[in-house]
Each structure stands twice: as C-alpha cells, then as structure tokens.
Nucleic acid binder design. Structure first.
Lengths: 113, 113
DNA sequence: TTCGTCTATCGTCGATAGGCGATTGATGCG
DNA sequence: CGCATCAATCGCCTATCGACGATAGACGAA
C-alpha cells in the first residue's frame, strides 16, 4: 500500500526547507531533550523556529512532549517511511537500495558534519 | 558523505507537490517514453505540466531526451539517493536501516499513522 | 502571589510558487 | 513550402511561504 500523492507531497514539503533539515539533524545529534537551544543553533528568530517546529510536528516527523518548563522534541522517523518507500520504489530493481554509510546507523563517524 | 541541507531541501522541494509525485509515478509505470500524455493524465494545462517537468529536471530527478517530435522523459532515481540516505540516517539506532529483504519498498513499521 | 523563562500564536510584510492563456520554436508530414 | 503538432517560454495574477516583532499562555521558582 502506498500513500496518496498529497500525503507524500506533504511529507516532502516538511523537508523542503534548509532550516527544517537542520532541525532534524540537530534532533538526531541530540541524545536527550532539546528546546530553545534550537533557536540559538539556527540563528533565526524564536517565532520562526517555532513555526518550523509546528510544520514538522504537523507532518508527524517530530513529536513534542511537554517536559516541565521546556518541551522535549524527538524524531519520529516512522512518519517518513512512506516517503522513503516511495523513493525506494522509484529505484530500478537492480539499483542500489542503500548507501553504505546509511546501512549502519548504529554509531556515527567523526566525518559527520 | 552527506549532502548539504540546502541540497536536501531542494530535492525534497522537487517532491513537495502532488502533481510532481504523480508525474514520477507515471514515469515509473510507463515502460517507454512519455510525452504530452502526462498533460492528459494530470488534467492540468500544458504549460503547468511543462513547468513541473522543468522543476523535476532542474532537480535532476528526471531526464528529458529529445526523441523526434516528442520528448522521452525518464526517471533518474540516483538523484534522490542523498535524500533517501538522509531519511535512512534519521532512523534511531534501535532499528536496522536496511536488512536484505527490507531493501524492498516494504520498509515500514507498525507504528504507521 | 509575583516574577522570570520558555513556547505558541498573531499580524504583517516581501518573496516565491503555482496556475493559466497566449505565444514562440522545433519537428515531421502532406 | 505550408501546415499541424508538441514542448518550452512569457506575462500576468493569486495563493502560499518564510521571516520578523510583539503579544499571550503555561510553568516553576522565589
């Protein structure tokens, strides 16, 4: 079963801004909770960052959990599964499914940006 | 090696419209060349479809090859590899990114929304 | 309670995207 | 050659996005 075109487009739209890509990278690199630190890391206004977080949350890519005075944002990679499946389905059968470094995400290398 | 944030955002932007997702699906389902048939299938104006094709071509997702009076559009899935790798890298370490049979598009979890 | 901090929302502005019709350029056919 | 067809481009308009500052709400600490 494949997701509908608008759904896929909506997921892709959530990733279609450099700031949002960076937010996802920050969340991936941060083991615990992260809140307003995102604002400092991005160099954008707090309201702008909040808007990006809202878009990501609306797409289901991240989850926001209230943790006292802050908010614990966490990745929800399962939400991107339909998009990943769609991209994978475009690959020809003989094509490479997985880049080498993507196949083993258990630990990261220092060559990470 | 990971692509830069703007590059990933640009790839995602190419997929961030239902019409473009549908175009990719059509190209995938069409074994041979396809030209103005896309216009009929999408129900949009010819100029609009041409613009979407131009965007997809600019992103490198498709290639246009002149074949006589028509144009042969073909998928170029390799262009989406950085985006696929990025999505795969977001997966938490708890889940394997790419088991041999998981390389098929059926790569999803039960927590699907 | 009052204060300070953190996040979400509102209003506004400029920039961009998306849609269309009309036009233009290239190509093959009669 | 002249015509028909297909794709690309142009000009225009509307809708949406992205950014910001200002403000409001929620919460813990004092």
């Amino acid at each position: 079963m494949q997701a509908t075109d608008p759904t896929l487009a909506d997921l892709a739209r959530a990733l279609s801004h450099p700031a949002r890509v960076r937010i996802l990278r920050l969340l991936q690199a941060t083991p615990g909770c992260i809140g307003g630190d995102i604002v400092g890391a991005l160099g954008l206004a707090q309201s702008t960052v909040s808007e990006h977080l809202r878009i990501l949350k609306a797409a289901g890519v991240i989850t926001g959990e209230i943790a006292g005075p802050r908010i614990c944002y966490a990745l929800n990679p399962a939400a991107l599964a339909p998009l990943a499946a769609f991209i994978a389905a475009l690959e020809p059968a003989d094509g490479p499914c997985c880049l080498p470094q993507a196949c083993a995400p258990s630990h990261r290398k220092s060559s990470e940006s």
